[in-house]
Amino acid sequence: MNSGEKLIAKKCKKCGFIQHKDHIRCLKCKNDTFDMIEAQGGCKLITYTILNVPPLEFRDKPSYALGVVQFENGIKALGQIESQKNLKVGMKLAPVYKKICNNLDGKEINDFVFKSIE
């Protein structure tokens, strides 16, 4: 979903469905022309979990919060949440671009995480 430090997605020119930029054809209508759109405004937390048993490449932290968010213009994303405290479905969050982990090849992975703005 990310290009540089912009959180972007594809919006189908035919049916308007918003989807991850990896899709080559629309999930809903098979059309292959899209507008690239950027996440706008704040986002709301749709659901979250706190994972206490991370996969191998994330074991530098004992646990972290993960959430699914939706921006005002419809873009959805999954990402880590900076704090594990006071999480609530519906709370307002903002994206922050930062290092998430080193992958198994030792490469630094940067992406968006979300912080509370309430």
Binding site: H20, T49, V53, P55, L66, A77, D111
Partner: peptide
């Protein structure tokens, strides 16, 4: 999904 899920630390339990 390698970019939308896995690279953020998502696993099946999460």
């Amino acid at each position: 999904h390698p970019k939308a899920e896995r690279s953020h630390g998502a696993s099946l339990p999460s």
